[in-house]
Design a protein around this nucleic acid. Structure first.
Lengths: 212, 212
DNA sequence: TAGATTGTTAATCGATTAACAATC
DNA sequence: TAGATTGTTAATCGATTAACAATC
């Protein structure tokens, strides 16, 4: 029997649980029920129990959940304890901002290189890196054991670059910030983050509100 | 009879339709069926027809959809023809990147000011703006008729700032990049974009793939 | 007219919620 | 033991897909 794939709805709730639990830990709260967690996150207690049970129950009947254990379990599920090497393609504003955002380093991401095609910026410093020529992408991926590629190029070239990246053996994830939806394959998962889409949704929802 | 609210699933598909249709226009394709649109977007033709009919049918039986008309309709639905004034709170890397990302200006967003609390950067230039002291947020919102606030602060202060912003009469939307889920109210819609959540999802999904 | 494709209703599927026996 | 809360099954709800009459 093939194990049931976890639905995207469940997957996208996991980081929210993790954030909430991590705040509880900071407040030195070591025990929590699905009901309380529901009040904190806005999900129903039923849904929370269902979600957790996709990964095997880690609560105790009559007691609730041990916050520290839960934290460990969810970190394990999200696989965020293991560090990953990444590169950024496109050293425009967004690419440079991501390179500079040290926050990611605090999580599990080590950004090893940033690339661009524009000769005017190749060689310039960016954070603790130097912007490299795109022709060295493949060799850098091999040498530095890169598993994640972050696409910050204009949309016109994003798909083509993504296809090339997917052929690199060590690449298993693409984080795409260009406003094109790139499809993954058996080997590579693609997380599409379209800020423009998000802005459009904001615009639509604002229209629905009172007075505007 | 109160009209049925549009589900978030539908709303989040609208920008994808718009992007696809806009590419068709660039290619000078002026007629499209739901079936063809389905092949381009990855949605079923049935779903596309259902989605469009939430807003009144804009197709012709036996013909399909007029691409130009469709483009206009979806722009109208998303309310992106009207320009909006925005401010950015937090002039760290992400805040500055958004200020610099001229792409948004090409859409409908005019960024009128960027604020920070750090005296060391207040007064410094950022794009065509100068970083302002956060104490002037309220007065700027009034003077410049700001309807969107973009939060790029650390998570510790994001919720508190959001609450204050929601009390400003002209603010109807908050685009929140801090990793905290902020709840909107009757007047203000909050679009939460947590890049950390997105990164966690990428990590989880990579684990599921072959070889990694 | 005949063919194509919509708009819309009905059927199916999946996700969320409710309920409750198991048990800490 | 009694109370609390889980894990899990069943019921409900909503979203997607299929089907087809309407009609361009």
């Amino acid at each position: 029997m093939k194990k049931q794939a976890i639905s995207m709805n469940v997957v996208r709730r996991l980081p929210k649980y993790l954030r909430c639990i991590s705040e509880l830990l900071e407040e030195k709260i070591f025990r929590i029920s699905s009901k309380q967690l529901g009040e904190l996150t806005g999900f129903t207690s039923s849904q929370i129990r269902q979600d957790f049970n996709h990964f095997g129950g880690f609560g105790k009947q009559g007691y609730g959940y041990d916050v520290q254990a839960l934290y460990g379990e969810i970190c394990e599920i999200l696989a965020i304890k293991k560090r990953r090497n990444a590169i950024i393609i496109g050293a425009g504003n967004l690419g440079q901002a991501i390179a500079n955002y040290s926050g990611f380093r605090e999580y599990f991401l080590d950004i090893k290189a940033i690339f661009d095609i524009d000769e005017n910026i190749i060689g310039k410093p960016c954070c603790d890196l130097v912007i490299k020529d795109q022709q060295y992408i493949d060799s850098t991926i091999d040498e530095e054991n890169i598993s994640i590629a972050i696409i910050c190029t204009p949309k016109e070239v994003a798909s083509e670059i993504a296809q090339k990246l997917m052929n690199c053996p060590s690449i298993h994830g693409i984080w795409n910030f260009a406003p094109v939806d790139i499809k993954g394959n058996d080997k590579v998962f693609v997380e599409n983050v379209s800020l423009v889409d998000s802005l459009y949704v904001l615009s639509f929802m604002m229209k629905q509100k009172r007075n505007k």
